[in-house]
Design a protein around this nucleic acid. Sequence first.
DNA 1: GCCGTTTTCGGCCCGACTGTTTTCAGTCG
Length: 586
Amino acid sequence: MDKNQIVQLLEGIGELLALKEGSSVFELRAYENGARALNSLDGDIKQLVKEGKLKGTPGLGPTIIKRIEEAVETDHIAFYDELVANTPAVKLDMLRIPGLGPKRINTIYEQVKVTSLAELEQACKENRVAVLPGFGKKTQDKILQGIAFLSEHADRFLYPVAEEEAARIHEALATLPEIVRHQVAGSLRRRRETVKDIDMVVSVADDAGPEARRKIMEFFTTQPTVKAITGKGETKSSVILGSGIAMDLRVVADRQFPYTLHHFTGSREHHIPLRRRAQSMNMTINDYGLFKINGEQEELVPCQTEADIYAALGMEYVEPELREDMGEIEAAAQHTLPTLVEEKDIRGVLHAHSTWSDGHNSIREMAEACIERGYSYLGLTDHSKAAAYAGGLSEDDLMKQGEEIDRLNEEFAGRFRILKGTECDILRDGTLDFPDHILAKLDFVVASIHSNFQLSPQEQTERMVRAIANPYVSIIGHPTGRILLSREGYQLDMEAVIEAAARHGVCIEINAHPSRLDLDWHLVRKARDKGIKVPIGPDAHSLAGIDVIRYGIGAARKGWLRANDVLNTLETEALLAFFHVQRNRG
DNA sequence: GCCGTTTTCGGCCCGACTGTTTTCAGTCG
């Protein structure tokens, strides 16, 4: 069991304890802290356990260490299993409804006696929830809304969950000598921010017999992460994996591989205009091949790769991320597709926290982690004072932090630079949490909304636009505040926000955290078209948090961004010059 | 369950907001 899985178990214990009546709120907080503490540890967990290195880590006491050791040794935590067995599943389901916490869940469970979300929905519609003590009409409506949101997103998974599950199977399959080519397809390959199921295509030699296919399918359906088999044949098998995500594996002859891969990569929306184009060229395309139509005859157009398929249709190769019917068909036909930004183009980090606010690592540790990863700079952005829950800095603290940064920069001189920044709260009225004369002392400012989510769309838009107009604001952080699969962003007119940002020369970030990916890629494209520079910010709260940049790269590529559309592809001097010009915009 | 320049018991992050109340509990970040 790896570190992430153990972190999830510890977090799970926290949730389960919250739902257990009579349990201590401090005990569950201890598990949440423990999960966070473990998550921020670097290195192989098995090694750490073996060397007894967990002891002394703040947040990890004797009991939690024992549970971590148990997980490493047995792949289970008995305490967790026991809690799961004693917790009604509907309580866990209810926990995912925004606005419902442990207390209200227990009240509903005790007094309305629901056993499923469907029953809860029914109870709300019959007004049986609003009458409970401490509840009311608005709470009941909010619960109904939450249930509707969940049923819309229930069967989707965050990209990293799907990616990790797919990678495990992919690695295992790659060891089979019968397999010639293997590739993840579907929305995962297109790097959608959430994924419903995993599609994988593998090929066997053109002359391979059925036993080769049977062997692959047997191997696939008996992988340790397979929880259930929902279908098993020689060309297609379907399973449910440990996280609950469904996965399909297709096995084809190698000559058919590019066509099948292309078909199952999608998207459906991309294929519709593509088929139209094929038709206009007297061809037809499906998952078996690309065919030239000669009267009654269909003649296969031989293709070794997907690039060959596009070439046969008179097009440039279309990267999977772009296959969303966002104009890529026309652009590929005119050979005007952008050269998309890649992870290696990123030169530094522009949204990160340290122990000065709610980060887990010191500035030095964060800086050294950036150096290790080959970056040239770290734009440090601890929270401002209004973000009290996150240990936001006062003006005094911010200035003291600046002194620490100066000392470190002297030490790193010539090879690395820490930029002085802040993630400054945008207050309710659109003013910033620090006065201008303080902001003027920083290299750059990320401005974000962390409160008053409920303002009307008009008020929220005005608030954001007012912040954008402040000449010290360099970047708007996580502009819509959405949490994928969990809550919608705050209501605002993003078109107007993008318009204002373009007018004032302010950047809008892609917050690369896989639960955010905010700005959404559809809007990234709009921002780019208005000439807005888009930083890809990890919003890192730990060393490992820096690495989520690659998810942001996915969103950037889906939004058609080239390297020079991304702010943090600039080298240090060019970046500082950019901020300088931005600040003197008048 | 964790932690200690109040150290083995008694605290534990906290302010804002919402919807429910009529002074506050629950939730969130």
